[in-house]
Simulated scan of single mutants.
Amino acid sequence: MSTITRLLVYAIISVTFGTIQAQEKVKDSLEKTSVDYKIEALEELKVKIEKEEREYLKAEIESINERQDAKQITAAEAEDLKKVAAEKRAANIENRLAIVDNKIELLKRNDSAYSVDDDESFIFRIGGRGEDSEDEFIYLGKKNRKHKPYKFDRRTTSDIVFAIGFNNAIIEGQDLDDSPYKLGGSGFMELGYAWKTRIFDNTNFWRLKYGFSFQWNKFDIKDNQYFVNTDGDVILQEFPVELNKAKFRTTNLVFPVHLEFGPSKKIEKEDYFRYSTRNKFKVGLGGYAGLNIGSMQKLKYKEDGNRIKNKQRGGFEVNEFVYGLSGYLAWGDTALYVKYDLNPLFKDQAFDQNNISVGLRFDMD
């Protein structure tokens, strides 16, 4: 064998052997890193557990202080409750850390494919998808979430408000029967968000309800009429051809406030209490104020055999500032609802028109 051939064979053997060694080292390094990574993640979890339990204790102590400030418990009772809470949280830390320490010991005794999945709100897995799989994957995350302790007394709650019903106008010098707007075709809708706050410490009979709402008030104009703005004077005139539809709508953003009253049920637990108005009678009296944010007249008719839809936005001298009175009579989450605009619909008109709405209101709390 020539010298060149020998050198070539040696080179091939060296490269092949070196590649095999490198692969073994990478494999060993990967397995070692997998276990170490799991253990490192669990050590971080131990720190998180201690922090989490301390935050829970802080929240419980704040709740106890609130009860003491409200004179629901004495200072001595508050200290006893704080001591019990601290002992409970310390025991929680000890028990939870012991669980994590046991996992670490399990990992140290086993290879990288070993799983430590359970309900400790943490999952870490690295390895193939099956015994015959060669592709590796890593998953690191939470399995479930711990709930923060309840606030002992929650005086303010919130809910979505939705209302729908009939709409019309009270016109100066006219009866409602003489209204130029159809009773059946004219309607309103309201969608908003409201907060409800208990006024007194030891009773939920009186509540203050407040929030914001979008109101859509629609008039279905009858007798083939439509609105015309003539030099700031908005009047109804007969349309030149037969109308299939003539509707006028205003959109308002308002901020309602109601004094709500009625019975409620007190639900008492060991570490919190709540008042519930579920299936209870309640009354709300108040009003609203806000801004008109749009107006539109929609006309549908035929001309020369063609169907025409005409939408006119703005230019109807609608009052920008909106305010009125409202009230509801409710059983549970459903109420009979009435609202009345104290401001005239149009400004500087010969005859005032005031919007009035009657319908159903749903407070979805």
Results as ranks from 00 to 15, higher is better:
255 F>M: 15
280 K>D: 15
210 Y>P: 07
255 F>S: 03
303 E>Q: 10
261 F>Y: 15
231 D>C: 01
216 W>P: 00
221 I>D: 14
273 F>N: 11
313 R>S: 12
293 I>L: 09
236 L>C: 00
271 D>S: 14
217 N>E: 14
245 K>F: 08
218 K>S: 14
269 K>R: 15
219 F>G: 00
256 P>K: 11
307 R>L: 10
211 G>H: 11
247 K>N: 09
247 K>H: 10
292 N>Y: 08
274 R>M: 08
236 L>I: 03
228 V>W: 04
309 K>G: 09
266 K>Y: 09
255 F>I: 06
276 S>A: 12
217 N>S: 01
292 N>Q: 14
308 I>W: 07
260 E>W: 02
230 T>A: 05
266 K>I: 11
293 I>R: 05
306 N>L: 10
243 L>G: 00
265 K>M: 06
236 L>H: 00
235 I>N: 01
281 F>D: 13
246 A>V: 00
297 Q>A: 01
269 K>C: 12
275 Y>V: 06
274 R>G: 07
242 E>Q: 05
283 V>G: 04
263 P>K: 13
237 Q>C: 05
312 Q>M: 08
218 K>R: 15
295 S>T: 13
306 N>V: 08
243 L>K: 00
210 Y>G: 13
270 E>R: 07
287 G>N: 02
213 S>E: 14
293 I>F: 09
280 K>S: 15
244 N>L: 07
270 E>D: 11
226 Y>L: 00
302 K>F: 12
219 F>D: 02
279 N>A: 13
228 V>M: 03
309 K>R: 15
259 L>V: 14
224 N>S: 04
273 F>E: 15
305 G>L: 06
271 D>M: 04
272 Y>R: 15
294 G>R: 06
213 S>N: 14
273 F>Y: 12
252 N>V: 01
249 R>E: 13
301 Y>W: 07
256 P>L: 11
214 F>H: 08
216 W>T: 07
309 K>W: 07
